[in-house]
Design a binder for these strands. Sequence first.
DNA 1: ATAACTTATAGTACATTTGACTAGAAGTAG
DNA 2: CTACTTCTAGTCAAATGTACTATAAGTTAT
Lengths: 226, 226
Amino acid sequence: MSELVIDALSIDSLIFGFKKTELDVLLVQHGEGISKGKWALPGGWIKYSESIDDSANRILKDLTGVSNIYLEQLKAFGSVSRYPNKRVITIAFYALVKPENYILQPGFTAADAQWFKISEVPELPYDHKAILDHGLRYLKHKVRHEPIGFNLIPKKFTLLQLQELYEAILEQKLDKPNFRRKIMKMDFLELCDEKQTAVSHRAASLFRFDKKKYKMLKEKGITFEL
Amino acid sequence: MSELVIDALSIDSLIFGFKKTELDVLLVQHGEGISKGKWALPGGWIKYSESIDDSANRILKDLTGVSNIYLEQLKAFGSVSRYPNKRVITIAFYALVKPENYILQPGFTAADAQWFKISEVPELPYDHKAILDHGLRYLKHKVRHEPIGFNLIPKKFTLLQLQELYEAILEQKLDKPNFRRKIMKMDFLELCDEKQTAVSHRAASLFRFDKKKYKMLKEKGITFEL
DNA sequence: ATAACTTATAGTACATTTGACTAGAAGTAG
DNA sequence: CTACTTCTAGTCAAATGTACTATAAGTTAT
């Protein structure tokens, strides 16, 4: 297997997580190279011997230790001067993960890897800020048309947790009874016979996202819209 | 200006047109190289000295002679064996044009350039069929959420022309009075005081898409949905 | 000239969905 | 038992979508 990389082509990934009521993004601190010490999007070089999807998966895996559920190509960024001293086009990917499932392990070339709240992201090198902004805009759109939000919260969740996720991503308040009704009518949530625990008020029911049911509905032409 | 190309990176463009009631795509016939004689998507190499958007525009211009209104990056395609003998990743773009505005002029390396009805596209080399399928799926989605269809029909058009465009792209019949009402209520069509000519029945009013009005509505948060 | 035909355009009636809001149920804490 | 919190069900008017019908405005054939 060739380890040779295509030197004009990299991948940078936006890895989003969600904790409580805030959207997070995963950054790594460069341990070497021109931008040593700076926080940046996790990225790497594409090898001659792997597809770009494999490449994105490998880089993601190197960072989180686990291969992920939802990884998608966003867009290529290729202005002439985006990278110093060298012409590098990068393909941006994004993934949605549950932070609690992963123990962050900085790889060889990274000094550290940490989750940052979207509102507290430090200055980023190259055009990484533009990539992040593009990703957030895309996420905001995508989350309303496809049930991808479930990748950010635990398998079993309450309707309020789901609502708070949407409120965080869309940056707007939603009406509780109406949100509830809308989601329930779509009919792809399965009620677990379990309730929330350790809360000092009436416990909410836990639900899980039923992928099979959703797939069936989608084939029938019923689409997720929020 | 450096004419050097990045040899692992190309661009392939989907250029869609619309005639009467059928969606068309622009193909070029290779005049040299391994796939000589074959029809394929118009494509070329990215130069070190140009951004990928500039590159896409240059290639499109080389083929149609005119710089275009609506050109967007679709996705990168990069499976290891998509191109013979060499590792080439391609970035796919797409554009929507009015075929009647252009006189097709095959460039240096192309033997011919022609519009093909979507249903009559010949066998395509490499992964171009996959790119086309992806583009069609994307177009079908996009056309329902943004008023891009107007790039495919003449400046002045009748509501039936517009409806037929949507029917062709979405591959489904629409109800005339309802389509009409929905479009009109969005309030970005301007009535020209002109009517259809040379038809053997009552002439329909001609409309034009009012970009400024649409922009204003969009800023107000009103979105196009069909 | 008039009847038959074609397409444009307006309107109607009913079902469904949305948005704002009310109200009771279920559970906790003092 | 009472006060408090959140969950969950429901109401109602307004807006929208769907499937039609009806009429208008022309063209063509007789």
